[in-house]
Simulated assay, not measured.
Amino acid sequence: MTNPSRKHLVLLGAGRANLQVLRGLARQGRGDLGVTLVAPHPYYIERGMLPGYVAGDYALEDIRIPLDALVEASGAGFVPAHVHALDPGARRVQLSSGDAMPYDVLSIDVEPVVDRDQTEAEMPGARRNALFTWPLESFVQLWPQLQSLAAERALHVAVIGGGRAAVELALACAHALAHPHGTRVTLVSDENPLLASEPPGLQRRMVARLKQLGVTVLQDRCTGLDGRELQLASGARLVCDAPLLAAQPGPPAWLLQAGLPLGEDGLPLVNERLQVEEHRQVFIVPPRAPLELGPVLEANLRTALDGGSFKKVPVQASRLRVLSCGAGRAAAAWGPLTLEGREVWHWKDRRDRRQLASLFKI
């Protein structure tokens, strides 16, 4: 599989930072380094533009970009596979293809996942009846089927989840499915306050948008799904044709079971260079990493392979928060200042398109 005479860098996952590493290798060359990208699908999906895709503002090809040109330009190999297990002691990754891939240095930047077994235990019937928003590749392919059904008759759609992704999805659905038959959308947001981690001004703007688009908000918890309705913790039942599960995703099981030290948040611990202290040849990109993390990650990967000085990860200093509101609108907050409207959406659209294009610009 690999030439044992040269060092091997393995990139697990087609996340933004790993793709920025590939872009750097394409521009600066990889020398005698062997590089392999492992990902389930040969695409990158921009999750920040997903609500726009659901709302109809983007076509699928606007947010899902093939990886082949970037991989070829970087000189890397591509293995389409899922990861089954990681053995950091042996420096080996077990893949769904059956291969055990060795590495000298490993960079992990994978798509988060929803634990379907745990979800099924908490909401019996979810595995069979719900449309999961993760993994993104599956969701973007199934979403047009729901659109087609809503074009035939009025539906009652329930979005299950209380975070910003669930709110953005509910608004996008309400806009996209309202015509021609008046499909209704309900957001089942758990018992916690809606968007509790967002600035108060932004919370108010988003609640107002939910009301304007006719989204019903239930601060209740889904405890089961049977195909025609949801069972709620309060004892109530909600008639539902299409439940969309927008639960908060987390690290994949194989990463949590690799024997790496975990923090209080349940995530693998890394230092300021993104290294696992006990296994310094393993680098992990955190869930809410800075957008332009790639150049620092690339420099640190090269240092781990060839020696030199490591760089610290830049601090995420921006206080800007931007959420999609459906119907070609977005809301933004900067400190106490909040704005909402079409102008904010146009700004967000230009920013997102520019950042996505730059990711694949060689």
Rank of each mutant, 00 (worst) to 15 (best):
R116S: 15
V217G: 07
H279T: 14
S107V: 14
S107N: 05
A196C: 02
L146P: 10
L269F: 10
A17D: 02
Q257L: 10
P199W: 10
E278I: 11
L37P: 04
A85G: 10
R205N: 11
T186N: 06
R351Q: 13
Q20A: 04
G341Q: 01
N192A: 12
Y44H: 15
D220Q: 05
G235K: 00
H84N: 14
G163S: 01
F360M: 06
R184M: 13
E120L: 05
G201V: 09
G13R: 03
R184T: 15
W143G: 13
V282D: 04
A154D: 13
S197T: 12
V296T: 12
N18W: 02
S197C: 00
A357C: 05
Q281V: 01
G89T: 15
R342T: 14
S197A: 09
V79L: 07
M49P: 10
D57S: 14
I63N: 06
V21N: 00
Y53E: 08
V239Q: 15
H156R: 14
V167P: 01
P88W: 12
P287E: 05
D352F: 11
Q145F: 07
V282A: 08
L337T: 14
L256C: 08
G308Q: 07
V38G: 03
L244A: 00
A158L: 09
L267P: 15
G308Y: 11
P243T: 14
P51Y: 01
L339C: 03
A14D: 03
Q147E: 12
A172K: 00
G24I: 02
L131I: 11
R27V: 09
P193Q: 06
A253P: 10
L269D: 05
D117W: 02
P80W: 10
G263D: 01
R319L: 09
V54P: 13
G161V: 01
G227D: 06
E168P: 02
S97D: 04
R329Q: 14
V93M: 07
P180D: 04
P102F: 02
G182P: 11
A121L: 10
I45H: 02
R204I: 03
V110D: 12
W347P: 10
A317T: 15
L245S: 00
P249H: 09
R329A: 09
P40T: 13
P135Q: 12
S324T: 06
L25E: 07
P124H: 09
T303M: 08
A166P: 02
R16E: 01
K361N: 13
L146S: 07
P286W: 00
D62T: 15
V217K: 04
D104N: 02
V167D: 01
S197N: 08
G259F: 11
A331H: 10
E111Y: 11
S324A: 11
L337F: 15
L245M: 04
G48V: 07
V157S: 07
P180T: 12
V285A: 00
G56A: 08
E137R: 06
V157R: 03
D68W: 11
L70S: 07
P135K: 00
L9E: 06
A246V: 11
V315N: 02
W254P: 09
Q28S: 08
R351W: 12
G182N: 07
G250Q: 12
A333L: 02
I63K: 04
T133A: 04
A130L: 11
S189G: 14
A121Q: 11
P144C: 08
D190G: 15
L359Y: 09
L67R: 12
E46D: 14
C173K: 01
Q145S: 06
G89H: 11
A59R: 15
E122H: 08
